[in-house]
């Protein structure tokens, strides 16, 4: 009987080995392990065996049975995996076809630049203030030390609505308004971005509407070297650590001393090229120490408080940073232009 069992085991394992489908396996299972199968038959004939032999053969028969069952399971798993592979193979798609389109919008380049500037100054403890685009003559000019008849009013011919109302020519009135709000008794540390308007005929470098970001810091004991430090840190973050900056004396009615800030030309690295008009430097902003008259008009005692102010044009910065060659691009809303600057951030 032993021999018969071993024979059966060999025979069954061989058939399992050869089986290639799940139904083959099922047949084998029925044939060898089923109630009418040969192993059951062997077990039935155990009655003829001696007392001693019975458990030995019984154990052997169970082992054979388990061995076959195990092999069947292993083989089944193998065949199932193979069948799944085959099924998945048939499900293959053309992954080079395009995905279902999703509309993607994005910010205007000017908004990106302004936000970048805002975030840099927020990091240095500045708040952001806004103000009206239609201003009074007082806030646009007089509060900024530009009384009626001042020659510097020529510098910025304006769009007047009435004798007293105009489209603001700079965002500086927001500075005067903020100081007025703080009533001369607390420090002011703010920037004011916004639209401004001047009587210019639109061409490649002029626009009757453009953007400005101005900043103001008023406190006790503000030094001109602070202005230099803040602007330096701002410019390096915006334009890159490798840019050099320099300040030149200049003139604005609302600051004294006044400065203009240049950065070293990126195109030629300061050697001189057509972009920087052979000077190696590109002007990017103006500023200075707040004129005592401006402080006084806003209710700050210039003997106690002083400060610095600065202003810059995001269009110009965008033109320098990205090589935009015509200021009218910013207002034509040509989708081909706008899309170039939708950064995936």
């Amino acid at each position: 009987m032993k021999e018969r069992l071993k024979e059966l085991q060999l025979e069954a394992l061989e058939r399992v080995e050869k089986a290639s489908t799940l139904s083959d396996l099922q047949d084998i299972r029925v044939a060898y392990l089923g109630k009418k199968g040969p192993i059951t038959e062997v077990l039935r004939g155990m009655g003829k065996l001696s007392q001693e032999e019975r458990p030995i053969i019984g154990e052997l028969a169970n082992k054979v049975r388990e061995g076959i069952a195990n092999e069947l399971d292993v083989k089944k798993a193998k065949l199932e995996a193979k069948e799944l592979d085959k099924k998945l193979e048939q499900e293959t798609i053309d992954i080079t076809l395009p995905g279902r389109p999703v509309q993607v919008g994005g910010p205007h380049l000017l908004t990106s630049i302004v936000q970048e500037i805002e975030d840099l100054f927020i990091g240095m403890g500045f708040e952001i203030r806004e103000g009206p685009e239609v201003e009074t003559d007082y806030y646009n000019f007089e509060a900024l030390n530009l009384p009626k008849g001042h020659p510097a009013r020529d510098m910025q011919d304006s769009f007047y609505i009435t004798e007293d109302l105009l489209l603001r020519t700079h965002t500086s009135p927001v500075q005067a308004r903020t100081m007025g709000e703080y009533k001369g008794s607390q420090p002011v540390k703010m920037i004011c971005p916004g639209k401004v308007y001047r009587r210019d005929t639109d061409d490649a470098t002029h626009s009757h509407q453009f953007t400005q970001v101005e900043g103001l810091y008023v406190d006790k004991d503000v030094r001109m070297s602070d202005l230099k430090g803040v602007l330096n840190s701002f410019a390096k973050q915006l334009f890159g650590e490798d840019r050099e900056i320099r300040l030149r004396p200049s003139f604005f009615p609302f600051t004294e001393p006044s400065v203009e800030m240049d950065i070293s030309c990126k195109v030629c690295n300061g050697k001189g090229c057509s972009v920087c008009k052979r000077t190696g430097w590109i002007e990017i902003l103006g500023g200075g120490m707040v004129h005592p008259r401006v402080l006084e008009l806003a209710g700050y005692d210039p003997k106690v408080y002083n400060g610095f102010a600065f202003g810059m044009g995001p269009e110009r910065i965008a033109m320098l940073k990205y090589g935009v060659d015509d200021i009218r691009h910013f207002y034509a809303n040509d989708v081909r232009f706008l899309k170039q600057y939708h950064k995936a951030e």
């Binding site: 805002e118 708040e127 070297s225 602070d226 230099k228 803040v230 300040l247 004396p249 400065v259």
Partner: peptide
């Protein structure tokens, strides 16, 4: 300052009490 040279002014940061900047 201009005859002394703006280039010769040091770089410093404001020494007033610092405040947190931010958006409203």
């Amino acid at each position: 300052a201009r005859i002394y040279g703006y280039d010769n002014l040091p770089y410093t940061l404001p020494q007033g009490a610092s405040q947190a900047g931010g958006l409203t």
